[in-house]
Amino acid sequence: MERERICFTLNNSPVEIHCHPGERLVDVLREQLDLTGTKEGCGQGECGACTVLLDGRAVNSCLVLIGQVAERSVLTIEGLAAGGKLDPLQTAFVTEGAVQCGYCTPGMIISAKALLMEKQNPTEAEIKEAIAGNLCRCTGYIKIIKAVQTAASARLEG
């Protein structure tokens, strides 16, 4: 496999890696960059556990090739708590009891982040739409939706 030099922005810092441009973003993040907060649940774009932000939009990193992110910006769950301060979404997921086994949680939070970056005060329908591509086998979603609402209002008030 031909390796190439690929530069992109990862969690607000520039990175340079050497790999085959056909490798999946999820593998590069987890195996090469040791960012294991991004999970793989299906490898087929069905479960959303691997969701990251690519230029501010939620994407399934199992369906993105590393060559596609060159010169672009990727944000993973590890990059969300800037300077160690939790994002309001992370705080709300913890306090609302939206985390059970936690395997869907990073992807869920990232999908919700993409929504809140676009809409300050989303409706319940918009929240459901935003996390429609994220499966949770534990919670039943109710507390996840509540957590997104709580985070949205915390930001509006705060």
């Binding site: 907060g37 993973t76 590890e78 997921f93 306090t95 009891g97 985390v99």
Partner: peptide, 23 residues
């Protein structure tokens, strides 16, 4: 009361290591 789950924060920040995350 509604105590916070002890491992929730690490799961929400991606710090938790599941067996597949170990290397």
């Amino acid at each position: 009361s509604s105590p916070v789950k002890v491992d929730a924060k690490d799961k929400a920040t991606g710090a938790t290591k599941y067996p597949g995350d170990l290397r």
